[in-house]
Write a protein that binds this DNA or RNA. Structure first.
Length: 464
DNA sequence: TTGGGG
């Protein structure tokens, strides 16, 4: 490094050839990882930066610090980082910069939309210079017209996710909250529906181990759900164990973000994602081609007559049930949950994933009245819906034999049955899509929203 | 020193 009065920042292109030298760099953050502990005694995070001389892949910077708080906490991809006295190193053919906690320093600035030149985080030994404003201003100007060329095929839609896979997602943050004590989750959406899962849970398990209505301990309040999109899955992404729970998504509600390397899992038949220490967040401008593509797909979807029905349901809903409510359009369970009135009627396309009771002998109360609780699912939500009295008569077409009743419920639950109506042992069940009429109502006048329940009506199982 | 990716 030259004397400190020779204050200059190297273009990344030139830094790459300055192996084993200390350099000053200023760049736009293209990608960043979560701050984490190293296997040694320190903490570290990695960034990839770009500038006009090096726009494509991003130049890796590894930053070390004694404490997590001392690492740069990047608010958003596209922010600017100034790095002083970082060492350029070559590692297995790759060149990158290493931030040394003793002699390196950094400052973080907002990206292209900011007007001021005040850094939002600096390392303790960072020294600001008057010239910095000009460097940052120039970088912001360049960034305005920058076109990122993202490979669209390397980012999955939620409709394409597969269990156990590491995937990249380009999605909108719709909410961020604590799922359980110190367990944070980001709720994301891309306008498509996650694929339906099959269930290994046996029908008789529902009493002791009911399938959850949601993965978080308590359901999200209705006023939060009201901010969610009504069509398309809202996926929960949790932080895997062993690294800092990052609250930065709080700042980004309503924004689209690209995540690199998220793990997909199924819990209780519900899809979720996991952020791992290897997950990266990539710069996602509003006009990013991937984002425009997803927005266009969604606009196309909801402009279609059947766009609010589950993507995966065609043409099954018409074969399994008939509904006596033809004049209304289908709505999603999220529409149902967030409807403005407690008392209302709906028509939905759902899967019946569980039932209590599950034995046909018990569908009727001792007084001979139907009373059951079904668990319904669509790509947006799960609810419990009751079947009472005459609605049961409609659903099961009167009071057929136990054998017929049992066949009808098995059909709804997607149980594979042999010719003699015995269940195929341990086969996963894959409930079919069915159309149902639902009404919502309240139990207690004093707490109409708190006591809201759902009931199936005007729906008949057919083809059994 | 550490990590660099999965």
């Amino acid at each position: 490094m030259a004397a400190t009065d020779d204050y200059k920042f190297l273009p990344i292109r030139d830094a790459i050839t300055s192996i084993n030298q200390k350099v000053n760099l200023i760049g736009v953050i293209l990608e960043f990882g979560f701050p984490k502990r190293t296997r040694g005694t320190d903490c570290c995070c990695t960034l990839k930066i770009i500038d006009e001389s090096h726009q494509k892949a991003g130049f890796s910077v590894n930053i070390f610090a004694e404490y997590l708080e001392m690492l740069p906490h990047v608010a958003s991809g596209g922010d600017i980082i100034q790095l002083c006295h970082v060492m350029v190193k070559k590692h297995i053919g790759e060149v990158n910069a290493v931030f040394n906690k003793k002699f390196s320093s950094f400052a973080l600035y907002k990206g292209k939309d900011a007007a001021d030149f005040a850094p939002y985080q600096v390392s303790s030994n960072f020294r600001r210079r008057d010239m910095d404003d000009r460097f940052i201003g120039n970088l912001r100007k360049w960034l305005v017209d920058l076109q990122l060329h993202e490979e669209s095929s390397s980012f999955s839609l939620l409709r394409e996710i597969k269990e156990g896979e590491h995937i990249n997602l380009a999605c909108k943050i719709v909410h961020f909250s604590e799922a359980a004590k110190d367990e944070w989750m980001a709720l994301v959406w891309d306008g498509t529906d996650t694929p339906p899962n099959s269930f290994s849970a046996k029908p008789e398990d529902e009493m002791a181990y009911p399938l959850p209505l949601q993965l978080e301990n308590s359901p999200l309040p209705r006023d939060i759900l009201c901010t969610f999109p009504k069509v398309g899955t809202v996926l929960r992404i949790y932080f895997d164990q062993g690294f800092q729970k990052n609250k930065l998504f709080m700042l980004n509600i309503g924004k689209w973000i690209k995540f690199v390397n998220v793990i997909c899992e199924v819990r209780g038949g519900l899809w979720c994602g996991l952020f791992t220490p290897f997950t990266k967040i990539r710069y996602t401008p509003d006009e990013d081609c991937l984002i425009l593509e997803r927005q266009r797909l969604y606009d196309e979807r909801i402009s279609l007559k059947w766009g609010r029905m589950p993507l995966w349901s065609f043409p099954s809903p018409y074969y399994n049930t008939e509904v006596n409510y033809d004049h209304v359009p289908f709505v999603s369970l999220m529409d149902v949950l967030t409807h403005s009135e407690v008392t209302a009627k709906f028509k939905c396309v759902v899967r019946v994933i569980a039932a209590i009771p599950w034995k046909a002998e018990e569908f009727l109360s001792p007084l001979g009245i139907y009373r059951m609780r079904l668990t319904l699912e669509d790509p947006t939500a799960r609810i419990h819906a009751f079947v009472f009295a005459e609605d049961g008569e409609t659903l099961f077409d009167g009071y057929p034999s136990v054998d017929v009743l049992s066949r009808k419920l098995n059909r709804l639950l997607g149980l594979s049955v042999c010719n003699d109506n015995k269940m195929v042992k341990d086969a996963p069940r894959n409930p079919p899509w069915v159309q149902v009429c639902l009404k919502s109502y309240y139990i207690s006048k004093d707490d109409v929203w708190g006591s809201r329940q759902y009931q199936i009506f005007g729906t008949k199982i057919v083809g059994v």
